[in-house]
């Protein structure tokens, strides 16, 4: 029951991020989703009682629940980009598309593992949904910061798949991924900051004018 609650919490948060119209709501959604993911891995670590998993859990909390959202919030505040996300598709249509995507994910995972049965099996469905929704966010949100968040949602989905299907990636890989994320977010954040200072906007759509 608890695992199920957390898993569907992750899915609901992904949908909430699709529904979000402001950057702060989007960041909050990501933070909440990461928190659910943290609880899930914590339960896994507690069950298997492995030190490595505990370390991963701690890092997850530090990076995804605290550092990255705080950093993004700070960037958003610095460049005063909180007003809108530059939605190219309105929330209702986005939501319908997201439902369709996760229905496809359901159909697809149903072919690999039988979904009614072990609750953990639904983790694959949810991770695939989260990954697809993340991609969808990256495509349809014009502001660069929102795109970073789409990427992070994708990463959350992939992490969930790895954690649930194979019981986690190798330890070193896991740690490396966290540093990757941290670096990517910092670099992208700085880029966004610079782009904003140079062009006074972070609308990725308008960057097409830069081509030669």
């Amino acid at each position: 029951m608890a695992v199920g609650l957390i898993l569907f919490g992750i899915l609901v948060m992904a949908f909430a991020m699709v529904a979000a119209k402001r950057l702060s709501a989007l960041i909050f959604g990501f933070r909440a989703q990461s928190f659910f993911l943290f609880m899930l891995t914590f339960i896994l670590a507690w069950r298997e009682n492995s030190t490595q998993l505990y370390i991963v859990t701690t890092m997850l909390f530090a990076v995804k629940v605290v550092l990255v959202p705080n950093f993004l919030q700070k960037v958003a505040r610095r460049i005063k980009a909180d007003e809108d996300l530059g939605l190219s598709v309105n929330p209702t249509v986005s939501m319908s598309a997201a439902v369709l995507l996760s229905y496809m994910a359901y159909l697809f995972t149903g072919k690999i593992v039988s979904i009614p049965g072990e609750f953990e099996n639904s983790a694959l469905f949810i991770s695939l949904s989260a990954t697809m929704i993340g991609t969808f966010l990256m495509i349809t949100r014009m502001k660069a910061l929102a795109q970073i968040l789409g990427l992070l949602v994708m990463e959350n989905g992939i992490f969930l798949a790895a954690a649930s299907v194979s019981g986690g990636m190798p330890f070193i890989v896991e740690i490396a991924i966290f540093f990757d994320i941290l670096l990517v977010v910092i670099i992208l954040g700085i880029f966004v900051f610079k782009i904003n200072r140079l062009f006074t906007h972070i609308d990725v759509d308008k960057l097409t004018e830069l081509k030669g």
Binding site: G4, A19, P91, A98, I115, P116
Partner: peptide, 25 residues
Amino acid sequence: FRVVDMMSFSFVLSVIAVVISAMGY
């Protein structure tokens, strides 16, 4: 027009409820 978004989010919530029910929980 934000109500539309709220209602579509609750719609998604109830779709998720059906999904969970389809999984047998």
